[in-house]
Design a protein around this nucleic acid. Structure first.
Lengths: 353, 353
DNA sequence: ACGCCGTCTGAAAGCGTTTTCAGGCCGTGC
DNA sequence: GCACGGCCTGAAAACGCTTTCAGACGGCGT
């Protein structure tokens, strides 16, 4: 009767689900202090005298108090939560980046809300709205292109945004990006340097995946640089981003011109498909045809032959994107565009002519 | 002056970050109704007369109102958020399950908070506490073993729990599981049925990954079933869960006994490592040695030779775990243990003797 | 004409925190 | 002995929403 609370009028309260949660006010009463003091113990311990602090902390531990973050968020206007939207979770390359993001954010005390856009900008926009409803303090978005309304919204709400895998020409935003074009240029350079002249380019669908389009562009430019041109016939685009589509594309390629000595692929999975088709034609990799990939999926080191490829540091990209978001949340201004390094991983699928 | 609000006393409010958010009472004032009515339009539209509803909705759209879910959660005691803890995000097999979870939950209006436990139970417990602070309505936990305190906590707070990849003997909880032991038994059966008698078992580290331990157990039991025993010499455990460790393990295996005609692996990556070592020994797969995997990583269909393996439906498992959590959130009681189906994927790495 | 009921609406009471504000207490310097 | 300042504490307001409660209104049956 000293406790005119609304809930838990039932006799056996405490053993019932959802009833046992005790609030900061309860803790205060048990410890014989005011709610304000409990709050201070929780948030600014040095403000309260040792003796009281001890008493409060004892109660806190005894009842295993769990703070209600909704109330905290309501008044402090901080949810300690950030939202992440990715095209897909299933791509292992991205997955390692997501893991890095989670790790970085968690270490800083932030929770991570994730959603998949499946490369649909409208969907991404809706998901962003929902995340804003949920009160995220910041957002990490993936890819170079997003709805403009999205940025208006986040800006007007004062929500920090960090872009990853985004090499768009942005000045007042924060972004980290792969150097996709340069990475593929390195792939081409590698082949040329090893004496290859008849080089085919195998690319995934470029339509809705800008990074892949960038890789293709980088490859073409480099071909032009070396040979004065890059014939359309030497480029083949797969129907889907999987090995079987890649195999079919290689079939078309070699149907037109059987004398290629090397294939540069804009993705490692495509490289696997290329190897399949070549094997079917009794062509050896790398003895007859060399293959170079891009991305460095872990598994490609375990295939036969182990794939020579250009390593793209997705984990690091995620870590950087998260770190930069944290900086903004700490008050720093958006920090512009940062590129990730890349490098060649020499395994055995490329041979010197 | 008609608006004695605490914030935004500055002249240029509206163009400033974090200032432009308008609340439900603002909307109410603009629409000339009470806050209660706006709330009703948002949550129970049929309760309000058409004309007013229209007016309110107009304002809502015009100012692109975004609800503050912290306030809503505070009073309604529902956050429309669920927490997911997985051992790791980097495992592609899990990733597809996570994607399914996200998809299912999002379709039902729930947000997804994720964390990685890295197979550390204490860490998982701490992460759970943080998620409870954040007010999750339910949790999806991965794996068969968790701290008991965790369940006390969720139970006392009335938070629904759905377990995935969990075949522990639980009665009053909800869980979905792979039939890991049976899947590996199928692998052994397949080999035996194809005429193999000299079979080695290659397993990943069983210490902190119960599913792998189950697979091993299933394999051993089946070997005993067929041959009266399963010699310890025929079983080799890898140091890590990767292809290189697997290669080394196969080296040990064939060092002891070069006459194996088949290797059953508790994971697809291990199978890849096995192929590597065999190739190094100039042994052909499957002509000299057959290999069967377990798990069905997408990529294993693109390697040489395409891997025969037992398909484990991780995507479906995630979808089921999410669905069952939703059921509980809708009021249904925990629904016990549900097993996923599995089946053989015949590709080419197993040959009939 | 009266009362009753059903439909719609607004006032107000919270939800569990954080933070401001003012005051109490004590020691210090005069 | 008194004023002053520093340290600690509690009362109370506020955050933005939902929901209960009661009242207003109009239509209906008697």
């Amino acid at each position: 009767m000293t406790k005119p609370r609304t809930r838990a009028p039932e006799p056996d309260a405490g053993s019932r689900p959802g009833i046992n949660d005790i609030s900061l006010v309860d803790v205060a009463r048990m410890a014989g202090v005011s709610p304000a003091t409990v709050s201070r113990v929780l948030n600014h311990p040095k403000l309260v005298r040792e003796s009281k602090r001890q008493a409060v902390e004892d109660v806190l531990a005894r009842v295993s108090y769990i703070r209600n973050n909704a109330a905290r968020a309501l008044i402090s206007r901080k949810s300690l939560t950030v939202g992440l939207i990715v095209p897909t979770l299933a791509n292992p390359l991205f997955a390692s980046g997501i893991e890095a993001i989670e790790q970085t954010l968690q270490a800083a005390g932030y929770g991570l809300l994730v959603a998949c856009s499946y490369r649909d900008l409208d969907r991404e926009f809706e998901q962003t709205k929902v995340m804003l409803e949920r009160g995220v303090d910041g957002m990490i978005l993936t890819g170079p292109v997003h709805k403009e309304e999205l940025f208006q919204l986040t800006h007007s709400r004062g929500v920090a945004v960090s872009l990853q895998d985004c090499n768009a020409d942005i000045l007042d935003r924060s972004a980290v990006a792969m150097r996709d074009a340069d990475a593929m240029a390195l792939a081409i350079d590698t082949l040329v340097q090893r004496g290859h002249r008849d080089i085919a380019i195998l690319t995934g669908p470029t339509g809705n995946t800008p990074p892949v389009a960038d890789r293709l562009r980088g490859a073409r430019e480099r071909m032009t640089h070396h040979f004065g041109q890059c014939a359309d016939d030497d480029v083949e685009e797969t129907a889907d981003y999987d090995a079987e589509s890649a195999r079919l594309a290689v079939k078309r390629l070699f149907g037109r011109k059987p004398s290629y000595t090397a294939i540069a692929c804009t993705g490692d999975i495509l490289a696997l498909g290329a190897v399949m088709e070549l094997r079917r034609r009794n062509l050896s990799v790398p003895d007859d045809v060399s293959i170079i990939g891009c991305g460095d999926q872990v598994m490609t080191q375990y295939v036969d032959p182990p794939l020579t490829t250009v390593h793209l540091p997705f984990r690091q990209m995620g870590e950087r994107a998260a770190r930069r978001l944290l900086d903004q949340l700490a008050g720093a201004p958006p920090s512009g565009l940062e590129y990730m390094d890349f490098h060649l991983i020499e395994r055995v699928s490329v041979r010197t002519l």
